[in-house]
């Protein structure tokens, strides 16, 4: 795949994995890194061998820790606006992707890194996860949709606690507040994440794509319109080569 400085990729068994790796202790999401992520996702999107995508910071200490403070320190409002726009463009791309994207949170996940995790369709965490949104401590708020995605994921009172206290939460706490879907032991983490992703990638891409579209739409539109969309999407999958066989197989497997 592409030639990147701040990440590398691998494709195996239908799963494309992007490893954030900027050569420093923590993976900061500065503008260059966001550009590279956009490019890499574009390539994986076009690759028909890839049915599911993982973004992770394995084997490093962090998943991602948000913007580079040194880069931001001297920002003017217009720079802040542009930077936020760049990040939101990446997150729009993740949302618009036809493939399920998993955030594999291997360790420290803070600020913009937490927002990146929230932009993913599914979050799987290592028991080493430490997650926080410490913007208030720094005199800023996040600009990568965190103030909007977090309340939609964990409820708005919990989201306020997270933003107002700047506190760091453990993997178990993240699981309890439904910020992550699963927690795995650190020593088996990547293997479990790969297994999970391969199970997803093994399903027909069209059904996955439509399910993702509809679930994302559910965040934004009223029930009546959502129902109409679901109806159209459901109907469009019939008849499709392969899916009737899969339905029959499913019932045979589950008949006892």
């Amino acid at each position: 795949m592409g030639d990147w400085q701040l990440l590398h990729s691998e494709i195996e068994n239908g799963v494309g994995t992007l490893f954030l790796d900027n050569g420093e202790r923590f993976n900061t999401l500065h503008s260059e890194c966001i550009h590279e992520l956009c490019d890499a996702l574009t390539l994986l999107e076009a690759d028909s061998d890839v049915g599911c995508i993982i973004i992770t910071g394995e084997p490093g200490e962090s998943f991602a820790v948000g913007a580079n403070i040194a880069e931001m320190h001297d920002f003017q409002p217009l720079d802040g606006w542009n930077f936020s726009r760049l990040g939101q463009r990446l997150f729009d791309q993740i949302e618009a992707s036809s493939k399920p994207i998993i955030g594999a949170l291997n360790g420290i996940t803070m600020g913009g890194g937490c927002d990146l995790a929230l932009a993913c369709d599914i979050r799987l965490a290592s028991d080493r996860l430490k997650v926080a949104h410490p913007g208030a401590k720094l005199g800023i708020i996040t600009g990568f949709c965190g103030t909007q995605k977090l309340p939609r994921t964990v409820g708005f009172n919990k989201a306020k606690e997270i933003f107002m206290t700047s506190r760091t939460y453990t993997a178990d706490e993240a699981l309890q507040m439904k910020l992550v879907e699963q927690v795995y032991p650190a020593d088996q983490f990547m293997q479990r994440v790969r297994d999970y992703a391969e199970r997803i990638a093994d399903q027909p891409p069209m059904a996955l794509h439509l399910a993702k579209k509809l679930l994302n739409a559910a965040e934004n539109i009223c029930l009546v319109n959502g129902q109409v969309m679901e109806l159209g999407a459901f109907a469009s999958l019939f008849p499709r080569s392969g899916n009737m066989e899969r339905i029959e197989e499913f019932f045979v497997e589950h008949s006892d």
Binding site: L78, G80, S84, R85, Q88, I141, C145, T147, Q148, N220
Partner: peptide, 17 residues
Amino acid sequence: NLRAACKMERDAFAVCF
């Protein structure tokens, strides 16, 4: 809706600077 809300967040972020 989330789309409009994220734009509002972006502008507030910029004001911080």
